[in-house]
Amino acid sequence: MLDGLVKWARGKSPWVCHLNCGSCNGCDIEIVAALMPRFDLERFGVLLEGSPRHADVFLATGPMTRQIRDRVVRVYEQAADPKFVVAVGTCGVSGSPFYPGYNVLGGVDAAIPVDMYVPGCPARPDAISYGVLRLLATLDPKAEALVKEIEERYDTEGLVYTPEEMAQQRDPVEGARG
């Protein structure tokens, strides 16, 4: 029963925590812009939370630098389950264009598991919010219905990628096999 309650609460009001893994601030300000009057995600219950212990969704930006890696893993472990990680921006997806620098390990998934990839340089606020909504659809039937409606009305091709789709993108042969 408790599981059901947690699932219900998180699907309705996800608290997001911004995780900077060595980002250039481009995606970070777009995340803030998504919460500001124009896009205003707060009306849907999304709240930007400073503490990882209270967070449900991590919005992780930037290429994973060697210096930040251990700290990011520690912060990730502090969050309570179920937790999601959204890799925001092309750097978060693959580390590009800084990869392969001596201090860059690659994308966010070089350190922590990622549940949704939002490419873009910087990722657009609407794409970030759509990525979060897609994740919530796995918890909340209402969000699932909303995603279906959005997909019927708008072209969402290439806006966000699930881990499976991303594996397919990275290595078409391997991805199809796996």
Binding site: G22, N25, G26, T65, Q67, I68, F98, G101, Y102, N103
Partner: peptide
């Protein structure tokens, strides 16, 4: 924590490529 080895990468890419790398030093 945000050191991304940009200056080193710059001397591996050509002038046009560096333009886009330098742009990403800062997003603001």
């Amino acid at each position: 924590y945000v050191h991304r080895s940009i200056e080193r990468s710059c001397s591996e890419r050509n002038y046009v490529q560096d333009m886009y790398l330098c742009e990403r030093v800062c997003g603001i």
